[in-house]
Design a binder for these strands. Structure first.
Lengths: 244, 244
DNA sequence: CGTCCTATGTACGCTAGCGAACATAAATGC
DNA sequence: GCATTTATGTTCGCTAGCGTACATAGGACG
């Protein structure tokens, strides 16, 4: 709508997996890539849903969440523009026991199940990258499991902030303490206290759903090893993290 | 060595994935399947090791374990004859941040990385089953993460016993409380107490590394939903669980 | 048959996080 | 401008699991 050409026009290559595809693979699916916005709070799929699209986020953050019968829940992984959402499409299960929610608004390109399966069956680079990404996802999930068990909420909060930050373009996160508590599987009040400490120490400011990270390096000093382990594994497995 | 033909000779088909392969796929890899014993306590691979073989257990239990810098650890998944060990070979990462330990002695057939990659690239049934199994593994890992966070040790112990039992042929587990504590990521004393309750209530007997499950149905009554959720997902994704 | 080792049992104080109830304060809407 | 809603802050008692220290008991082995 603006009269000026946008400085960062929507482009599938803003997703790192799509950006890493060789020209032939990329061009083969390009016509089938459909651009869609991912609004904040959108539940992309619920547990057990038959998944019809594979999403390649270009911006924003998607959370994979497990829910228990008593209403408790935990986030098991975070996905940004480095990855994709909907592994069950090419893994073959068609659905997963996790639900998928947009935790920070953004955009994605999506591919229908049919096209993705066709492309995957060719055994080309998209297959290779999708599987590598899935392995990275397994690592993130596993590390989260261990972290949940052994590390304090203070440390987990640092980890979560850093992981989210890595998937954002600025230092601002739009998320309430209530939501964080659901993702980390703890009480809202506990998050209030942990975030209060960080705020008091000047690492972040927190105001009604807006977190601003003021001192990233101090966060990195407090975070548990889990953040670094996962990041390192992502860097190892995924193409061109461009040193970020 | 016995003069009698063994009643249950070693057979790759005792692994459920191998058993589900159509004849052509099966026969193509059969010459390359190498039978090996998996002795109790064997560390099949350490975190970061370059994995050279894909293992298809026919009996016994393998634990996937994450270790932290401070020596703490947690089991993130259990593998028996329903699955395979070494997903990084076909997922492409070649190694994983987890270590792999034989938690109950048994046997496996193994396939070299080279052969597995060749077979996987054909896009046949082994590819399909390997990916389906990997998806099931993701579910198990994720559910474990949530369970670690929200359920009591009492319930987690029941879950662990049942999951192990499902992968054994009898009702006897050979495992010390010390080992269980490492797998569940808690103190040994806590396991002593949880196991003591189960013993007192007559669900199990425990004696110097030998657990016998006396009343499986009572275990199933006490266990958290996580056991059932994972089992259901395994049944859904994997071939011919033969209603077990 | 006594010694040593390993596995299990027990006790004590401590802390993180829970559950519930309530207080404030910033946005939002009429 | 006032009421309502939403987000955050605070308190209090409680419990599961921790860390530590030590006790017992079954097997192994000399």
């Amino acid at each position: 709508m603006s009269t000026l050409k946008e400085t960062a026009p929507h482009d599938p290559k803003q997703n790192r997996i799509l950006a890493s595809l060789p020209a032939p693979d990329y061009e083969r699916i390009l016509p089938d890539l459909e651009f869609i916005p991912m609004p904040l709070g959108w539940t992309m799929s619920e547990s057990g849903d038959h998944v019809n699209f594979l999403h390649f986020p270009t911006a924003g953050i998607v959370s994979l969440i497990y829910e228990l019968e008593n209403g408790a829940s935990s986030e098991i992984a975070l996905v940004g523009n480095e990855g994709l959402v909907g592994v069950s499409i090419f893994m073959g299960g068609e659905s997963m026991p996790s639900s998928t929610e947009v935790q920070s608004a953004g955009y994605a390109y999506r591919l229908s199940r049919k096209i993705m399966k066709r492309e995957f069956a060719l055994g080309g680079q998209l297959q290779h990258l999708a599987l590598l990404y899935t392995q990275a996802l397994i690592s993130q999930t596993s590390q989260t499991a261990v972290c949940n068990q052994h590390h304090s909420l203070d440390q987990q909060l640092c980890r979560w902030l850093l992981m989210s930050l890595d998937r954002m373009h600025d230092n601002k996160l739009v998320v309430t303490q209530e939501l964080i508590s659901n993702l980390l599987g703890v009480r809202r009040e506990s998050v209030t206290m942990a975030a209060g400490k960080l705020q008091k120490d000047g690492l972040i400011t927190y105001s009604r759903g807006i977190i601003k990270v003021l001192d990233r390096s101090k966060l990195e000093m407090q975070v548990c090893e889990c953040y670094g382990v996962v990041k390192k594994e992502y860097d190892r497995l995924l193409p061109t993290p461009s040193s970020k």
